[in-house]
Write a protein that binds this DNA or RNA. Structure first.
Lengths: 252, 252
DNA sequence: CGCGCTCTTGACTAGGGTCAAGTGCAGTGG
DNA sequence: CCACTGCACTTGACCCTAGTCAAGAGCGCG
């Protein structure tokens, strides 16, 4: 299998995080400067590295600049529930900043590049750059809306619809940061990780993926998602991307 | 059946919202004054009244001072998934404040008393009362942590554990606002509402409730939850209330 | 070469959904 | 006072989705 890294479209250059906040409201040079300072210095975690643990109280929050990460919780029986998958431009562990201890685990799924978020600098930003603060809170609200939609999937969609929904959402997010097209995107997730996100077993996910493939809907193979029939997928998944709150979202 | 209103323990008096923020950090007279102004004027919605609708862009957010409400999303097939149940002291629709349109519906489950949250006054507070802003963001983070735990329930707990977990969590929240004890609390939820929160059918919830009752674990009857064996319930549910982030949480 | 990991598939099982019927009560109108 | 309606709740019978168990294939790596 081709190592994931070789397949990235490395058009990062401009910062995914700034670009994301910029979709909420246009940022001026001063504001972009503040963001630049928040986005440095950078730290690298290698793939598989645990970035934060549930119960820790070191209040580790980051901005993810490159690579994929995910947040999850563990149950006492050893089960794992993935809360969210994070891609470049996303927050990591933001919710835990003000809580006494982290409510989740964070792990790097590929090599990642992050910058740490410090509560003091954040509070300072809230008073000196209120527009930026609004954009920040908007992004946090949007993250929460994604978690809520994930909750709806787990509660009310069957395995097929859930899987279709997941890939469609991720596709929309990837497209927003210019790492994907309407046809597909690179996706370095293992089936077991995906299954733990979707609340089904890896075995059943495998069956669902086969069904999606054989129905001519979607192919997930070699760490790549290829949409074959987005329209029908969206119908099956009851997918409506308005919760992603893309201001200028394309219709497809 | 006894009307729900008659059974409230009306010890409100001091404001549930102020008390909640106060558990994060002690508030001084100035800060309490600001909160008082945010908590007025009050609006009443009668039971069953829809407070906000998904897709609306009137940015309606409230603080719930009295009564119960819930937030939910609808699927195209008519299905409903309850996101969260709100009790006095909770936010309503806070996440939708900065989004272009509300990502959820809000409905009053009992008569409720709310005060509206205005974005301008909120931003003002962030610059003039940073400690209050932190407490506010803490409360919002805690709400999100509850949603995440709900997501874990839907993804990885079976119907029995899910139901037990729900009642335990709600019990801890009720106790925090002094509307419940270690033995139980008043709970004006219909079985169908509860089922839509737990991601199961009302019929199956009914079977689960019977099982809980017959196993001597918990009784939910006449809008009242009575714990019979909290210890065993907590084991079954894999319940650990640290995500609720009660600073001084009692151990029981 | 063999270990370990991810992925794949089949056979069987069980948790929870669906369908259907029925109970108990509150409210309404005769 | 008593039908009648409507809603929330209850229970049983049956079925299907997804979990469990088991075996094997493909591949990277020491």
């Amino acid at each position: 299998m081709i190592p994931y890294e070789l397949k990235w479209t490395m058009k990062s250059g401009s910062d995914a995080f700034s670009r994301k906040l910029g979709t909420y409201l246009p940022l001026d040079a001063d504001e972009l400067g503040i963001l630049q300072r928040l986005a440095n210095p950078r730290t690298i975690f290698s793939a598989g590295r645990e970035i934060a643990q549930e119960g820790q109280n070191d209040h580790a929050a980051y901005i993810l600049h490159d690579g994929w990460a995910c947040s999850y919780k563990r149950l006492h029986d050893g089960g794992r529930q993935v809360i969210n998958i994070q891609i470049p431009g996303d927050f990591l562990g933001l919710r835990s900043l003000l809580l006494r201890s982290s409510d989740q685990n964070l792990v790097a799924l590929t090599p990642v590049e992050v910058s740490q978020v410090y509560p003091e600098r954040l509070l300072e930003m809230f008073s000196t750059a209120p527009r930026l603060a609004m954009a920040w809170l908007w992004a946090a609200s949007r993250d929460e809306a994604m978690i809520v939609e994930h909750l709806v999937s787990l509660g009310r969609r069957d395995a097929l619809a859930r899987t279709a929904h997941f890939f469609l959402e991720l596709g929309a997010r990837m497209k927003l940061i210019e790492r994907g097209t309407a046809d597909g995107y690179a996706c370095p997730l293992s089936q077991s990780m995906l299954a733990d996100a979707l609340g089904i077993t890896a075995i059943h996910l495998n069956r669902v993926l086969r069904q999606l493939r054989e129905s001519g809907l979607l192919v997930f193979r070699d760490s790549t998602v290829t949409f074959l029939d987005r329209k029908r997928l969206a119908e099956i998944a009851d997918f409506d991307l308005s919760y992603l709150d893309h201001g200028t979202a394309a219709k497809d």
